[in-house]
Write a protein that binds this DNA or RNA. Structure first.
Length: 580
RNA sequence: GUGCCCGUAGCUCAACCGGAUAGAGCACCAGCCUUCUAAGCUGGGGGUUACAGGUUCGAUCCCUGUCGGGCACGCCA
């Protein structure tokens, strides 16, 4: 019981129970469900296995539970086992065994909470992947916070994680950005430019145009009259109008078009990268959509679909028969004009992901893309790939509220709240925390006033405050955490202390659940509980008491709490301040 | 109209994937600072889990229907 490495009490009990079960009811395939009861009177762990099992065996559930308990091998960690209700089995852990977690947390430090759940499997998490056509907004922020926290949780649970950002650098949206930049540039040279309403309106486009002018003067100036010649009406055919302008820009600028395109791309991508880095969100890979065309993977992927007999021609376009895989309708992969669709490059991208040998692929998308899932999964199956390796996690929109009112956002007019503005207003910690405080597939009401309030109303401070309080106690004590290795933790027996010990032991399980369910919000809720129990303890007991044994035992406990608070906050990308 | 998601305290949300008396925060009421940080703590009122059926030992969770909300239904990305 003095092992310095992690010991999994829950796993131990689960094995014990499974053994007993195999003797009492051989061959039963009921999973051993072990949970932490809400009520302390129901023990530290409880199982209801006897209930579903009883029926199949034609036995009385309570009597069956009794037989299971009788068949349990003795355990040094168990104080007693009780039967309750219709057939629940309640396990009570010996107090000193409950507190053993304190020693573990102190000796393992930031490694406490990790598990081998992932067994080193390679998992890719692709998230944000915003079009590099303008600043990231608050919607991207949620995907960023969720993805980064999820990746951290998966890594802590023993997965080998690759964090990836898919760069849409090949499509029409980028052409529109390049065109917008060029038109703004022409306007800087005193041409009267009718700037299209469906081009990018933001001030950052003008800023890029200024940069180009400053660096290259008039080099990219062309006669505007030739741009608008024969253009479809902007009023009645806005999209065709835009496409015409793009084509004109390409033809007038020639090789110079590539420069403008790449300049805008590099600027916006760099801006997103900086923004995310400041938000504590970093990537192992930035994967270019354009590279899929350069390496001919798009062609190859589509050809493969054709070889497998899943393509047909209609109206001059090439269609993928996704309805054969449960999609609502078939989808175009190559347009009548010979251009591949976004879907085609996405098929190629996923083929590439599979070819890179990930055991598991997690795509994080905005919830508005949910209709896109069946066709991607269908394409994977059509390529002969195991579609179950792919999980798509949908992130719902975040709606901002200020003074109780919805903050209106519209991409069209360029009046949306950027991630940068949000971070400046509420701070990185509050933003990261608020974003993951909700299940990702739930709508999020983001209360700006609450997030930036420096008061007890703000949950992120509540947790950070617990950490700072502990840091302050340790500072006043003056000793080091290493001096607490042999603290007499068996003295810790008050209800506050038992509750904290049990809560600490739950941390590795929580991280593992969060990884399994792709639900980092579980960590946030766990931290709130832990902080609450610590604050109660803090108000009920003095830590720096004169009796050394008691002092050390209590310091060891709150030291362990500090370890877990810091660890959990770091998984969520939130800082753990020493002082507040 | 069709498909997917959602509906839990006045508000914002949890609930260990079918378990025991559905929990937190905010708001409201009453208390606690000459002692380690009051950004804290203690106590209190608040619920037919949208509604109606069904499945079973047991349902917020699974099934059907109704009502209400969100999203998606392009040779856009």
């Amino acid at each position: 019981m003095t092992s310095s490495h992690s010991f999994d009490l829950k796993g131990h009990l689960a094995r014990l129970l499974a053994d007993a079960l195999s003797r009492v009811a051989p061959g039963s395939d009921v999973g051993v469900a072990l949970e932490r009861p809400k009520l302390a009177s129901h023990g530290d762990f409880a199982s209801s296995v006897a209930l579903p099992l009883a029926k199949g065996l034609g036995r009385n559930p309570r009597e069956l539970a009794e037989a299971i308990v009788a068949a349990l091998a003795p355990s040094p960690y168990l104080e007693r086992v009780e039967l309750a209700g219709p057939g629940f089995i309640n396990f009570f852990i010996r107090p000193d065994a409950v507190m053993e977690v304190v020693r573990q947390a102190l000796s393992l430090g930031s490694r406490f909470g990790r598990s081998a759940l992932g067994a080193g499997q390679k998992v890719q998490v692709e998230f944000v992947s915003a079009n590099p056509t303008g600043p990231l907004h608050v919607g991207h922020g949620r995907g960023a916070a969720f993805g980064a926290s999820l990746a951290n949780v998966l890594a802590a649970a023993g997965f080998e994680v690759t964090r990836e950002f898919y760069v849409n650098d090949a499509g029409r949206q980028m052409d529109i950005l390049a065109l917008s930049t060029w038109l703004r540039y022409l306007a800087l040279h005193d041409f009267a430019i009718p700037f299209p309403a469906n081009a990018y309106q933001g001030g950052y486009v003008i800023a890029m145009a200024r940069q180009i002018q400053a660096a290259h003067g008039t080099r990219y100036v062309r006669e505007p009259a030739r741009v608008w010649a024969d253009a479809p009406s902007a009023a009645t055919e806005p999209e065709a109008h835009l496409d015409h302008l793009i084509a004109a820009a390409k033809s007038l600028l020639g090789a110079d078009y590539a420069y403008l395109h790449d300049f805008a791309l590099t600027e916006q991508l760099g801006d997103a990268r900086d923004d995310l880095a400041q938000f504590g969100v970093t990537f192992d890979a930035w994967f270019s959509e354009k590279s899929l065309f350069d390496s001919r993977l798009v062609e190859r992927a589509v050809a493969l679909l054709g070889q497998n007999g899943h393509l047909y021609l209609q109206d001059g376009a090439q269609w993928f028969r996704s309805t054969a895989f449960g999609d609502e309708k078939d989808r175009v992969v190559r347009r009548e004009n010979g251009q591949y669709t976004y879907f085609a490059s996405d098929i190629a991208y996923h083929l590439n992901k599979y070819e890179r040998g990930f055991d598991r692929i997690i795509d994080i998308w905005g919830a508005d893309h949910h209709g896109y899932i069946p066709r991607v999964r269908g394409a994977l199956q059509a390529l002969g790939l195991d579609a179950d390796k792919l999980t798509v996690a949908l992130v719902q929109f975040a709606v901002l509220y200020r003074e109780g009112k919805k903050v209106s956002m519209s991409t069209r007019s360029g009046e949306f709240v950027t991630l940068r503005e949000l971070r400046a207003e509420v701070g990185n910690d509050a933003a990261r925390f608020f974003y993951v405080l909700r299940k990702s597939d739930q709508h999020l009401d983001f209360d700006l006033d609450l997030a930036k309030s420096q008061s007890n109303e703000n949950p992120v401070y509540y947790i950070q405050y617990a950490h700072a309080r502990i840091a302050s106690v340790f500072e006043q004590w003056g000793g080091a955490i290493e001096d607490l290795g042999d603290a007499p933790i068996e003295r810790l027996a008050s209800p506050y202390e038992r509750a904290l010990g049990a809560r600490l032991a739950q941390y590795p399980e929580t991280v593992a659940s969060a990884a399994k369910e792709l639900a980092p919000h579980l960590v946030a809720y766990y931290l709130k509980e832990l902080a609450a129990e610590f604050h109660s303890y803090y108000n009920a007991e003095q830590f720096l008491v004169s009796d050394e044994a008691t002092r050390h035992a209590r310091l060891a406990l709150i030291g362990a709490v500090r370890v877990v608070l810091a660890s959990g906050l770091s998984l969520l990308g939130v800082s753990a301040p020493q002082k507040m």
